[in-house]
Every structure is written in structure tokens, then in C-alpha cells.
């Protein structure tokens, strides 16, 4: 993708470059503005919102990190995402395997039921789920986010994994079966290595959605020690709504590492998406 052919660009190509560049710059500018605003004092933000900071105040970032307990938020987000995503992708792969490679009664019905989950918006069960989690004594624990988080991604993941299973021919699995391998062995040793790239894509997609989940996190966890980043950020911005520089600093701390991680992994994220996405 980055192999740039450097013959002279035609006028049309320069035009394309210019227009695309301008649009990208405008859409990306708010992120740049956010970063340098986080180094300004409140007074500067109020008086001259556009200007660069007169003095780069690193202490804003330190204060936000400490006051907001951002370390805990990061840790919780990583933990919840890690567990939920691995659960979801593993189960979904197994389910997709079963739906495409095995014959069992009710297969079609189960798949159709699962598809409900693909289209159902999470708010439609948020309240009932709240009371259910309370009765299970899971509120205010990471499991209140992990289990529903994984469950809600499941339908989507199964749907795409199933499509991927269909797209590859079952020859290898049939050969293994003739060699006397049982279903479990076939799944682990034959299918999983084959669908591995698709699984990675699902990991990326699920990580983005679980990491960013807000509604469940808002309702199911009230304890500071268990909160995840998105809801922590919303709460922080309400809590310090009069201290603009602090909120900018918290925004920067919570987003820039993600952006850097993304730019490092960019090729994989986009390549993964393009390889399997949506077909």
C-alpha cells in the first residue's frame, strides 16, 4: 500500500491530493487542538481558545492523571476488554464451527435466534439486565461488564465468523475426520489455524466496541475502583466541568495512547478489516 510510484503527478492527481489533504486536515484538526489545549491554563482557554499555549504546562497532565485516578481506569478497561474479547471470539468461533460444520437438531432455529442479537439495540434490555445482574450479585464487579459485553458482541461475531467458515471449503476438516480425528481435535488443530486471520480481525473489531462501551458501564458500575475509561471520562468531565484545562488533559491522556497504538498497528487494523470485512 505504501509503495509510492514517483513519476510526476498530473494536475488531476495534485487536485485529488489537495482536496483529500484539506478534508483530512480539517477532520483531524480537533484532535490536534485537544492535545495542545491540554497544556494551556484555564484563563488562556477562556480568553484565546485558538492560540497555542504561552507556556507548556505539563503539570496539567500530571494533575489529571492523579485527580482522575486514570491509572485505575486504564487497568479496568484493559482487564474487561481482554477477558470479554477473548471469551467472545473463542465462543463465537466454536459456535460458527458448529453452525457450518456439524449437523444437529434445531441448528437453523438456533442460528435465527442468534440473529436477533445482531439487530437488537442494547438499550432495549439495559433495565432488565440491571435488575438481573443485581439478583446475581454481579453489579459493581468487572463481570457486570465482561459477561454482557461478551454476550452482546457474540451475535455479530458469530455472524461474520460463519460467513468466513462458509467461504473456505471443508476439505481439510473432512480429510482429518477420515483420519479418525474427533470433532474437538478437528476444531482445534484444523479449523482454528485456518480461520485465525478472521479471528484476529474479530479481536480488533470487538476490542474497539468493548473498550468504548458506555451504556452498560454507566448503569452497572458505580464504584470508582471498577469504572472503565469511557464512563470515567464522562464522569470526570462532569465533576471538573469548570476546569477546562483539566478535562482537556484527561481527554488527551485517555485518547492519545490509543491513537499511538492504533498508528503503530495501523497496517494490521486496516488490513485485517479489509481482508475479511463485510463480504
Amino acid at each position: 500500500m505504501s509503495r509510492a510510484t514517483e513519476r510526476r503527478r498530473s494536475t488531476a492527481e495534485w487536485l485529488q491530493f489537495g482536496v483529500a489533504g484539506a478534508i483530512v486536515l480539517v477532520t483531524f484538526y480537533p484532535a490536534i487542538w485537544m492535545v495542545y489545549s491540554s497544556f494551556k491554563s484555564n484563563r488562556e482557554i477562556f480568553r484565546s481558545p485558538f492560540a497555542l499555549p504561552a507556556q507548556w504546562r505539563w503539570e496539567n497532565l500530571i494533575e489529571a492523571w492523579q485527580v482522575g485516578g486514570l491509572g485505575t481506569l486504564y487497568f479496568n478497561s484493559v482487564f474487561v476488554t481482554l477477558v470479554a474479547v477473548s471469551m467472545c471470539v473463542l465462543f463465537a468461533t466454536a459456535a460458527a464451527f458448529a453452525f457450518t460444520r456439524l449437523e444437529f437438531p434445531g441448528r437453523k432455529l438456533m442460528y435465527r435466534i442468534l440473529l436477533i442479537g445482531l439487530l437488537l439495540p442494547p438499550p432495549s434490555v439495559a433495565i432488565a439486565l440491571f435488575t438481573q445482574l443485581r439478583d446475581m450479585h454481579l453489579l459493581n464487579t468487572p463481570w457486570a461488564l465482561i459477561l454482557p459485553g461478551a454476550a452482546w458482541q457474540l451475535a455479530f461475531t458469530v455472524f461474520l465468523m460463519r460467513a468466513y467458515f462458509i467461504s473456505i471449503r471443508p476439505d481439510m476438516e473432512e480429510a482429518a475426520r477420515l483420519d479418525g480425528a474427533n470433532t474437538w481435535e478437528i476444531f482445534w488443530h484444523v479449523s482454528v489455524p485456518m480461520v485465525w486471520p478472521a479471528m484476529l480481525t474479530m479481536v480488533v473489531l470487538n476490542t474497539i466496541s468493548v473498550w468504548n462501551e458506555l451504556l452498560f458501564a454507566l448503569l452497572f458500575v458505580t464504584d470508582d475502583a471498577q469504572r472503565t475509561l469511557p464512563v470515567g471520562l464522562v464522569r470526570f468531565s462532569g465533576y471538573h466541568s469548570t476546569d477546562y484545562s483539566l478535562v482537556f488533559a484527561a481527554l488527551t491522556i485517555t485518547t492519545v495512547p490509543i491513537l499511538i497504538l492504533y498508528f503503530v498497528l495501523q497496517r494490521h487494523v486496516i488490513a485485517g478489516l479489509t481482508a475479511t470485512a463485510m463480504d
Binding site: 478534508i23 483530512v24 477532520t27 483531524f28 484532535a31 474497539i208 473498550w211 468504548n212 458506555l214 475509561l229 469511557p230 464512563v231 471520562l233 464522562v234 481527554l251 485517555t254 485518547t255 490509543i258 491513537l259 492504533y262 498508528f263 495501523q266 487494523v269 486496516i270
Partner: peptide, 12 residues
Amino acid sequence: MFFAPVVLSMSA
């Protein structure tokens, strides 16, 4: 750069 906002959380 154009894809970058996708990885940010909605709340951010």
C-alpha cells in the same frame, strides 16, 4: 488519519 476517530470512544 481519516480512520483514526473510529478507534476513539464515543464518550471521548
